[in-house]
């Protein structure tokens, strides 16, 4: 790997809801072009981490650097403008905007009309079902279709890095395969940098360069995808063996 500075660097990140501290000092790094997974049990603080990085949640301590900028004190829209974009847990589609309008909202920070139109076509090529449903309200799509819409919507901003929170949650297995395939083949081929949060640790680690294990607000283990897949503690706790 290159010695270049990581694209995303998280140092000692602390986050709390009210008095309850959820993250106790998380350290992690993602380099340009890497797919990195963040795995951990339900309630470990994975979503909290992503919401802190998107600056939707308040940061209590630590430092986050993205693409050379200190984003610790930034507002959410500034982080998006820098190119760090999240596909949130539960998809958070705008239910009463059409599929097309949802995609347009993904491009909210952009002004280049022609570029946006071209990217809309690209999104429809990536997930053709969205083209068929483009005039339909987002809330009428199935869970899997909504997940595709959420991914396509995030891509509409032309991000430098995607953070995906449990893209396989509550989705029919055949669509899970389609979504993982998209992440693995299409996005990786484009050189997209990805931080992937997954309950499905096996699938996530298989397609990742590296991974981190989060346990009640602390990173307890890190290594390459292969190393973690082979680690007895990971196998016992997250791979059901």
């Amino acid at each position: 790997m290159s010695a270049a500075a990581p694209l995303l660097k998280v140092e000692g990140l602390k986050c709390a809801y009210g008095q309850a501290e959820i993250l106790h000092g998380v350290d992690l790094q993602v380099r340009q072009g890497e797919i990195v997974s963040l795995i951990g049990a339900n309630g470990a603080g994975k979503s909290t981490t992503l919401m802190c990085l998107s600056r939707v949640n308040r940061v209590r301590g630590g430092r986050v650097t993205f693409d050379g900028h200190d984003i610790t004190g930034m507002r959410p829209e500034q982080v998006v403008r820098l190119g760090l974009v999240q596909v949130p847990e539960g998809r958070r589609i705008f239910p009463r905007l059409t599929v097309r309008e949802n995609l347009e909202m993904g491009a909210f920070i952009r002004r280049d009309r022609d570029g946006i139109e071209a990217d809309l076509r690209r999104a429809y090529d990536l997930f053709p079902i969205l083209r068929d449903r483009s005039a339909q309200q987002g809330g009428t799509l199935s869970g899997g279709e909504q997940q595709m819409l959420a991914i396509a919507r995030a891509l509409m901003s032309r991000p430098k890095m995607l953070m995906m929170d449990e893209p396989s949650m509550g989705i029919a297995p055949i669509l899970v395969a389609k979504i993982f395939e998209t992440v693995r083949d299409v996005l990786r081929a484009q050189g997209m940098t990805i931080l992937l949060v997954e309950q499905n640790a096996n699938a996530a680690l298989r397609m990742s360069d590296r991974g981190y294990v989060l346990e009640t607000g602390n990173i307890v283990l890190t290594g390459t995808g292969q190393e973690l897949l082979g680690d007895p503690r990971v196998r016992a706790a997250y791979l059901g063996e």
């Binding site: 959410p76 403008r81 309008e101 909210f108």
Partner: peptide, 16 residues
């Protein structure tokens, strides 16, 4: 409309 329907998602789209 986006803010009305899901303010958090709107923030994640870069909407102020």
């Amino acid at each position: 409309r986006a803010v009305a329907q899901n303010p958090t998602a709107a923030q994640l789209m870069g909407i102020d």
